[in-house]
Nucleic acid binder design. Structure first.
Lengths: 131, 131
DNA sequence: ATCAATGTACTAAGTATTTGATACAAAGAT
DNA sequence: ATCTTTGTATCAAATACTTAGTACATTGAT
C-alpha cells in the first residue's frame, strides 16, 4: 500500500520532512484512517530509495505529535482523534479540508500568493497562541 | 516605527526567514499599506542586534516576491497589489484574514493541531497546482 | 526458548545553510 | 561635483542539519 508517498531529493525540503508532512496530511484528510497500518520503516525506505533512519525520523516526529503509534513488532498504526475514539469510518477532516480550500480560493482571488498564505497562517497561529 | 518586528534567535527558523515572514504577513494584513516605508536595512539590523546582510536578505526575497521595492537612496517601500494599483486606503486582505481565522477555528474544533493545519494547507496548495 | 521482524538509539560524515563583515554601486541632497 | 545615505554583491567562516549505516531493544510467533 504505502499510499502515494514520494520524495523529491532535489527539493529544498529535506526528505524526512516531506514524508512527515505527507503522512500528516493523509491522516488529517482521512485517507489514512485510525487503525491503518503504515508501511514499515524498512519497506518504505526501500521503496523511496533512502535509508531506514530517515523514515524512522519522520515516524518519530509523527508519534511525538500524537498522530501515529508504534507497536514494536506490529508496526506503526494511525491513532484516532483523541476526542472521538469510536468513529471509525467517517473522515474527520472534511470540514477542515473545505475550510482550507475556501481559504485558498479567497486568497487567490485577492491576489495573495501561495507563499504569503502560509506566512499569514503562521502569523495568525502565533498571535492566537499569545492573545 | 519598524512595527512589531522581532526575531527569536533560539528558534529553528533562521532570522532572515522570520523577518521575511513577518513583513509578508503585515503587508498581507494591510498594516503595512502600499507606499509605506520600511526601515533601512541598517536600522532594522541595529534594532534587532543582527547584521545588516541578514536583513538585506529578507528584503531581497520580499522584492523578488513582488511585495516591496527598493529605491536606492529612498529606502524600501511596500508595493500595492499588482491588480489594483489605485486602491490605497482599503486593506485588501480583510477577507483573507477572515478565511484564515475561520480555518483556524474549524481545524481546532476538529482537533487538528496547528502543525497539521500547515501541513494540510501545503498539501492542498501543491495538489491545486498540479490538478 | 528461540527466532524473526520491527522500531530505536547512536554516531560519524558529508552537505548545506546562515551569518556577518567588507567593499561596492546608485542616487539624491547640498 | 561631492558627500551621505541607502541597497547590493561577494566571500569566508561558523554553524547546523541531514543522512545513512550499524548495533541494540522489544515483542510476538513458533
Amino acid at each position: 500500500m504505502s499510499p502515494r508517498i514520494s520524495v523529491d531529493l532535489s527539493s529544498a525540503v529535506p526528505p524526512y520532512e516531506q514524508i512527515r508532512g505527507q503522512i500528516s496530511s493523509l491522516i488529517a484528510i482521512g485517507v489514512l484512517a485510525a487503525g491503518s497500518r503504515l508501511p514499515t520503516v524498512r519497506s518504505l525506505a526501500a521503496d523511496l530509495g533512502i535509508a531506514a533512519g530517515t523514515v524512522a525520523r519522520a515516524y518519530k516526529e509523527l508519534e511525538q505529535a500524537g498522530l501515529i503509534e508504534s507497536r514494536r513488532r506490529n508496526g506503526t498504526i494511525v491513532v484516532g482523534h483523541p476526542a472521538e475514539p469510536g468513529s471509525t469510518a467517517a473522515a474527520p477532516g472534511a470540514e477542515v479540508i473545505a475550510a482550507v480550500d475556501g481559504l485558498i480560493r479567497t486568497a487567490r482571488a485577492a491576489g495573495v500568493s501561495d507563499e504569503t498564505i502560509i506566512d499569514l497562517l503562521r502569523g495568525r497561529l502565533a498571535s492566537k497562541l499569545e492573545g
